[in-house]
């Protein structure tokens, strides 16, 4: 079947989709957006978290066909999404990664690319600064979930952070640096205001 939906502000079309495919599979294997991660495919780890019409969901539990006509934000679009939110504009439309850009994604090795010049959202920067990234496999899902938490609750208590992120497993960090990162992003956010 064919599925049309918007990803990171750009209309996308996937063809020959098998009806049992998940949104996660379509993003990763058909749209060149592998940032959302395939750690458990059973809704038990949060690595595949995306915003579906603004709501954080496990994309592994969304049938591809259910995404028809809907609006998806993935980690690849998080920086633009946060920027537009900060600027208070561009709910949809010509923001984010172009289809061409998205499909040009290709394998990159672990070189020393520091990505300087890449514009990051505050939560992305905080994860790097706080040492919240180790293997990084849980990171995309945690970023989407943390960003949404801070959007809802700019000044969360530790218990609020733990509750909001309780659907995202991390196996490397012991979560302490993730807590630090969310606190850091919240603090930076409140300084700006």
């Amino acid at each position: 079947m064919r599925v049309n939906f918007t990803v990171n502000g750009r209309p996308q079309e996937a063809d020959d989709v098998w009806e049992g495919e998940s949104l996660l599979y379509v993003l990763r294997e058909r749209l060149g957006l592998p940032g959302s991660k395939n750690a458990c495919e059973q809704g038990e780890c949060g690595s595949c978290t995306v915003r579906l019409d603004g709501v954080p969901v496990c994309s592994c539990l969304v049938a591809a066909g259910q995404a028809e006509g809907r609006d998806v934000v993935t980690v690849e679009g998080l920086a633009d999404f946060a920027k537009q939110r900060a600027e208070g504009g561009c709910a949809s439309g010509a923001c984010g990664t172009t289809l061409q850009d998205a499909q040009q994604w290709k394998a990159k090795g672990t070189d020393s690319q520091t990505g300087e010049g890449t514009e990051l959202s505050p939560i992305q920067q905080a994860f790097i600064d706080a040492g919240a990234v180790q293997c990084g496999f849980c990171t995309p899902g945690l970023l989407v979930a943390s960003d949404e938490l801070l959007e809802r609750n700019p000044n969360p208590s530790d218990a609020d952070i733990r509750e909001a992120l309780s659907g995202n497993l991390c196996r490397c960090t012991g979560y302490e640096k993730i807590m630090d990162a969310v606190r850091l992003a919240a603090a930076r956010q409140s300084e700006e205001v």
């Binding site: 949060g46 954080p56 539990l61 309780s166």
Partner: peptide
């Protein structure tokens, strides 16, 4: 129920 992500859907 499960996780925030699942409770959302």
């Amino acid at each position: 129920v499960a996780s925030p992500q699942i409770r959302n859907r």
